[in-house]
Design a protein around this nucleic acid. Structure first.
Length: 482
RNA sequence: GGCGCUAUCGUCUAGGGGACUAGGACGGGGCCCUCUCAAGGCCCAAACACGGGUUCGAAUCCCGUUAGCGCUACCA
């Protein structure tokens, strides 16, 4: 078997949608699994809405996800001459014909048909024109489109995900393949390009199923075998409706902004409508490629569940070496306006917070607080603790500060700190938590963090002691004033 | 309306006639660990849309119903 050739063919009329990204991913996985070629073709024939900026956003999104291509990007707009030639060939062969009906006439026919309850079907009146009549109108420069002459016969194919799908020619009509300005309509352009590029497998969204019989007919008329079609299911919002802006983030770039790690996004997307069978979920790239097959693709539309995405992202972050998170975290910190000395090694800080984080944003926020505890804001749970402990909060903090001051910077390590705080609790007859929690709240504003001794190491001796003392003073002052 | 596609826990899914008391994951609830949380471990609740067939036997095959979605342009 010759190696497959597949393509991802986005229209640059907007951002890279998660549905498009998932289609691209499936094409890429299939190409890598089979040793085939992945081609990127930008379908920019909609001149009104296509922009170079959108093209760039789409390319960037794919690159961010680690989806590569072996050929292209090709731009469909550059092949207008071939599209037109292919269509003209069909006219010459008697498989297509010029239609002189105006838009107004067509609209009127359509309105009449719908009024009488029937579906509209072009009545082929222009196909009945004599050759000389057609020639005369063309000579006079009467505007015309080209319509494909669709035979009334069964048009069927074995879809790689749905099995056999069959349409009847009589349910379709003689669709337009060339506009009156001689530019090709989508179905014509796609088939012309897919033939020219030697595409063997068309993997695309199943909203294209109803285009497929038209394309199959075009392949046959052009004398080519249709490729294998694999129609992948749609992606829906949480309400079960087609994913759209109403649902919030739908662009790949939005997730990048939200601190989703690309490998996690890719893994999550792969599992939306595809399963390797069994229980595999978190998969490295190589495994995903090895396991990917078209018949693992689901027929049913899938709901995009951001909660599970975030869980998966958290799994990736926990396993990721701090080194690999360094750049995105630095970028996020500067976006947050946190000045970071370029010599400052952020890796220990990242390591101490990543297990408790679901996004890069979340990591950066916690790193920022550890770099400068005065950034911390007391959260509701912190408030609750302060209320509950009353005067003990400040008292225990003062006690803690003195104990901490007893340690030199050489002794400022996790083991020694734990030891120190434990013996403090013991000698004062306090529970360990009574000593630890106030320090945690003083340094982070929250009752949630890594173990307090590790937190102290990461924040550093000077900053920790200063912050604990300040918080103690404020608290003790506040209590006595009250 | 016509044509087409689809239908397993709230969500993502496993399942391809007996291995199903329907498995896993997210989310929810509980317990363990523990200075808190996260992670991790253990446990609980939670689904085969409905109705007919076929078969000794159906989540699995067939038909119908219902529901959802897609397309129905000189858009892609």
């Amino acid at each position: 078997m010759t190696p497959p050739r597949v393509r991802f063919a986005p229209s640059p009329t907007g951002y890279l949608h998660v549905g498009g990204a998932r289609t691209a991913l499936f094409n890429w996985l299939f190409a890598r699994h089979t040793g085939g070629t992945h081609i990127l073709r930008v379908e920019d024939t909609d001149r009104e809405r296509s922009t170079p900026e959108h093209t760039q956003v789409i390319l960037d999104g794919l690159t961010w996800l680690g989806i590569t291509w072996d050929e292209g990007p090709y731009f469909q707009g550059e092949y207008a001459a071939r599209h037109q030639a292919d269509a003209e060939r069909l006219v010459t062969a008697g498989k297509a014909y010029r239609c002189f009906c105006t838009r107004e006439e067509l609209d009127a026919q359509r309105a009449r048909a719908e009024g009488s309850g029937a579906g509209f079907r072009y009545d082929r009146r222009c196909h009945r024109l004599s050759a000389s009549d057609v020639a005369e109108r063309v000579r006079r420069g009467t505007p015309s489109t080209v319509r494909f002459l669709l035979e009334d016969e069964e048009i069927a194919w074995d879809d790689a995900v749905h099995g056999r799908i069959s349409f009847q020619g009589r349910d379709l009509d003689d669709f337009v393949i060339l506009r009156s300005d001689n530019s090709a309509i989508y179905n014509m352009a796609v088939v012309s390009d897919d033939i020219a590029m030697g595409i063997t497998h068309v993997i695309r969204g199943d909203d294209h199923i109803s285009n497929t019989p038209k394309q199959v007919a075009l392949y046959r008329a052009l004398g080519h075998e249709p490729p294998v079609f694999a129609h992948v299911p749609m992606i829906l919002g949480a309400d079960g409706k087609k994913l759209s802006k109403r649902h919030g983030a739908t662009a790949v770039g939005d997730y990048q902004e939200q601190g989703i790690y690309p490998a996690a996004m890719r893994n999550f997307l792969a599992l939306l409508g595809w399963s390797p069978g069994g229980d595999r979920e978190i998969m490295p790239e190589e495994e995903m490629i090895r396991l990917f097959t078209l018949d693992g693709i689901q027929k049913k539309a899938a709901v995009f569940d951001t909660t599970k995405l975030e869980w998966m992202n958290g799994q990736y972050l926990s396993a990721l070496p701090a080194d690999e998170m360094l750049e995105p975290v630095r970028r996020q910190l500067s976006r947050m306006g946190v000045a970071v000395d370029s010599a400052r090694d952020l890796r220990p800080l990242i390591d101490s917070v990543k297990a408790r984080s679901r996004t890069i944003l979340h990591v950066a926020e916690q790193v920022a607080v550890r770099l400068d505890p005065s950034r911390s804001k007391i959260d509701p749970k912190g408030e609750a603790l302060i209320r509950k402990m009353g005067g003990a909060f400040g008292r225990n903090l003062s006690l803690g500060a003195s104990a901490l001051e007893g340690l030199t910077s050489e002794e400022w390590n996790a083991d020694r700190l734990l030891e120190t705080l434990k013996s403090l609790a013991e000698s004062e007859g306090l529970k360990l938590g009574d000593v630890m929690q106030p320090i945690r709240v003083a340094l982070t504003g929250s009752t949630v963090s890594e173990p307090v001794n590790e937190l102290l190491v990461v924040v550093g001796r000077e900053r920790s002691i200063r912050r604990v003392k300040e918080t103690a003073d404020r608290s003790n002052g506040g209590v006595s004033a009250a």
